[in-house]
Structures are given as structure tokens and as C-alpha cells.
């Protein structure tokens, strides 16, 4: 009996130690990526290529999701606001929810499943097919040549995607609220313009999404780089990327929000 409990405790302990190890290794990986980022700035076309594959290719899913999220916000917001007779505030509700929270968070979650998983699978397979080894043997540092451009590609694309998500969302809210339901168009836009602050709302949203972009790409790249070079290893790593980066996005969102909007309201 006692042995059984000890075995369970040992297994739990081993898992905790393993997790702490991985966290430490991922952090070291992140700092190495920053350290070897020089190449990216000397050869910007490497980063531009990654902005294309992580950012531009995620556009469709981001734009379509943004539109629908905005439309739902328009419907739900109108339902709630009309109870208090303040339908004209619909513009504020839609814009603030999107710019502060939904834009960065939902876009980052979509980015993690669309671009993050692709990055993990790509790096994992590059390792499995010895392409990473080949780079090393050709005296080209894989962190500088493969990892860092993808990292910066993610950090730069993410705020742009989140901004486009929010813009589409606001358009969706406008379609449902103004065009479909008939909220006053002037009130919708003017109240939004008056209530949304550039620094407090938009800039903070941009900072959030840049952080999310960094978090997602570091997790995706580390998981790919660390994956055992087998089919099973790569598939597990891809799953882990989506799960860990989604959790990390939500946790970081709480931390950032608690600092950013402390006295805002």
C-alpha cells in the first residue's frame, strides 16, 4: 500500500521536475533566439517570407472569424443594451470589446492553431529529415537562420492580424446593429469615436497582441525543435503547441489586462 502511494508520488514528482526543466529550456531557447536575431535584421527578406507564411496565409481565417464575432457582438449587445434604452452605445460596446480583449485574444488563439501548429510541424519534420543537422554541418546556425526569422515574423504579424480582426469585427457589428436592426448610424460611429482612446485601448491592444505573438511562436518553435524525430513525436508536439499556447495566451491576457486597465475605468 505504502509502496503504491510512493510510486504515485514519485511519478508526480518526476512530471513536475520534467515540466520545470522544459520551462527552463524553453526560456533558454527564447533568449538564444533573441541573441541570434542579428541575421534577421541584416537580411529582412528572411522575416518578410515568414510574415507571409504566418501572417498573410492566416488572413482568411482571421477575417472571416472577426466578421462573425463582430456580428454576434452586435446581436447580443443590442439585446442587452435595449433593455436599458441605450442602443446607441452599441458602437462603444462592439469597439471596446474587440480592441481591448476579443481582437488580441481570439486572433491569437486562431493564430496558434493555424500558424503555430504549422511551425511546430515544419520544424519537427525539418529535424526528422536531418535538415537542421544539415544546416549545422553547413556552418549555418539553425537558431539564427530558421528559428529567429519565424519568431520575428510571428511577433510582427500578430498585432496586424489582431487589428484586422478588430476592424472586421467592428464592420460585422455595424452590419448587424445599423444595417440589419436599425441602430442610429451617427450615434454608432460618433459614440465609438468619442469613447475609444488611442493609448489606453488601441495601443494596449497592440502591445497585448505582440506579446501573444511572441508567446505563441516561442512555444511553437520550441516544441518543434524539441520534438522527437518520429511521426508520433511530431504529432504530439503539434498538439502540445496548440494546448500550451492557448493556455499561455489566456494566462498572459489576465496578467497584461490587470496591469493595463487598472485605473482605466
Amino acid at each position: 500500500m505504502l509502496e503504491h502511494v510512493a510510486a504515485i508520488l514519485r511519478r508526480m514528482g518526476a512530471r513536475v521536475i520534467n515540466s520545470v526543466w522544459r520551462l527552463g529550456l524553453a526560456t533558454r531557447f527564447f533568449f538564444l533566439t533573441l541573441l541570434y536575431s542579428g541575421t534577421c535584421f541584416r537580411r529582412p527578406h528572411l522575416v518578410i517570407k515568414e510574415i507571409f507564411s504566418a501572417g498573410v496565409l492566416s488572413l482568411i481565417i482571421i477575417l472571416v472569424s472577426g466578421l462573425f464575432v463582430g456580428m454576434v457582438l452586435g446581436l447580443q449587445g443590442y439585446e442587452t443594451l435595449q433593455t436599458y434604452g441605450s442602443e446607441e452605445a452599441l458602437g462603444i460596446l462592439v469597439a471596446l470589446s474587440l480592441v481591448r480583449e476579443l481582437g488580441p485574444v481570439v486572433a491569437a488563439l486562431l493564430f496558434a492553431s493555424r500558424a503555430g501548429s504549422a511551425m511546430t510541424a515544419e520544424i519537427g519534420l525539418m529535424k526528422a529529415t536531418e535538415q537542421i543537422s544539415a544546416l549545422e554541418m553547413m556552418a549555418v546556425d539553425p537558431i539564427a537562420r530558421v528559428v529567429a526569422p519565424r519568431f520575428w515574423g510571428g511577433v510582427i504579424s500578430m498585432p496586424l492580424l489582431a487589428a484586422l480582426f478588430s476592424a472586421m469585427g467592428i464592420f460585422g457589428g455595424y452590419l448587424v446593429g445599423v444595417v440589419l436592426i436599425g441602430v442610429d448610424e451617427g450615434a454608432f460611429w460618433s459614440q465609438m469615436q468619442a469613447a475609444v482612446d488611442f493609448r489606453d485601448d488601441i495601443l494596449n491592444g497592440v502591445i497585448k497582441s505582440a506579446v501573444f505573438g511572441g508567446v505563441v511562436t516561442v512555444i511553437a518553435l520550441y516544441e518543434g525543435y524539441d520534438a522527437p524525430p518520429t511521426a508520433e513525436g511530431v504529432s504530439r508536439a503539434t498538439t502540445r503547441t496548440v494546448v500550451s499556447s492557448s493556455l499561455a495566451i489566456l494566462a498572459w491576457d489576465f496578467v497584461l489586462t490587470s496591469f493595463m486597465f487598472r485605473g482605466a475605468s
Binding site: T129, S133, A134, M137, M138, A139, V140
Partner: peptide, 27 residues
Amino acid sequence: LRRRMGMLFQFGALFTDMSVFENVAFQ
């Protein structure tokens, strides 16, 4: 030192996102 060594991997380890020309031009 590695710039003066070449290595041929078992299955080639070509970069799959580049054409044959770009692979050879890589180094």
C-alpha cells in the same frame, strides 16, 4: 572548420521549401 567540410546525409536532407538550384546555392 565546417565551411571546409561537406556532408551528405542518408536521405539527402535537402531543404524541401527550396528548388534544386536554391538548395545548391544555399551555402
